[in-house]
Amino acid sequence: MDASKGLEFLKSLTVESLMKALEEKLYVADRELATALYLAIQMRKPLLIEGEPGCGKTEVAKVLAEILGTELIRLQCYEGLDASDAIYEWDYPRQLLYIKMLESRKDITELESEIFSERFLLKRPLLRAVLHPGPLPPVLLIDEIDRADEEFEGFLLEFLAEYQVTIPEIGTIKAKVEPITILTSNRTREIGDGLKRRCLYYYVTYPSKEKEMRILKLKVKGLSDSLAEQLVAFVNVLRQRPDIMKKPGISETLDWANALMKLGAKELNREVLRSTLVCIVKTQDDLARIDVDSFASFTNRQG
């Protein structure tokens, strides 16, 4: 979609049109998620999506950028992430070289204003989002915010509330076009109230069996109905077991279905299960807890 079509889409945006567009891009969203996205776009408020890993939180932002035909700016959060990696950093080596080049030619005030100008600024994702020329707003994905330190949330507050960043040497830069911002969190720690207050909030959970079947059929071409049913039933049993620590998400189900297609499996039997279980069970503990033989009878019954 080019920029004009994207703008047109945004102008005539409805919950239905958004749902349809998401489905066209192979993202099955329920009406609630589509409404949350619709509100986030219309209200120009960041949307914080929390939920289990592998339930399509990051994918929403990617698909939305694709629908609008706009740039996706991604900030992947990690422990120790700070403003210099997220907002901006001065290009110090270049500044030093510049000072050396111009020394004795300029007075200090002139030099200072020059070296602390946009020219010597290394733009990180948040600043890139603010400086985006438009007219179509970029989609800014702040991924896995729970991995970042609590202090980093403080940096984000000004940005999320006003869509502006302050660089002491230059001043405050306000976004020309406010980005569509999506934050995701796996809930490994509680996000601060300040940040939550600035966002709309949506919690994604594991999909219903019917929805997961639809996702599988849409995303994995050639997957038979019976195999899809077996996969979904098996994954759902694992999700309900309290002793399984890392429960498989939708992405694991999709990986598993793709793996089975590559192996040419027609049904989920004991051998197939044993050899492909690693696609959905990702820890040694959980693998040890699953008795493949007892599940084999379950899958046969399903088949």
Partner: peptide, 24 residues
């Protein structure tokens, strides 16, 4: 603001509007 935006929609959208803005 969200309720104004979903004014033409049904009860599920009204609920979602309340949910995403007030229940975090």
């Amino acid at each position: 603001q969200a309720l104004n935006l979903v004014a033409g929609y049904g009860l599920p959208e009204i609920k979602t509007a309340i949910k995403v803005t007030m229940i975090k």
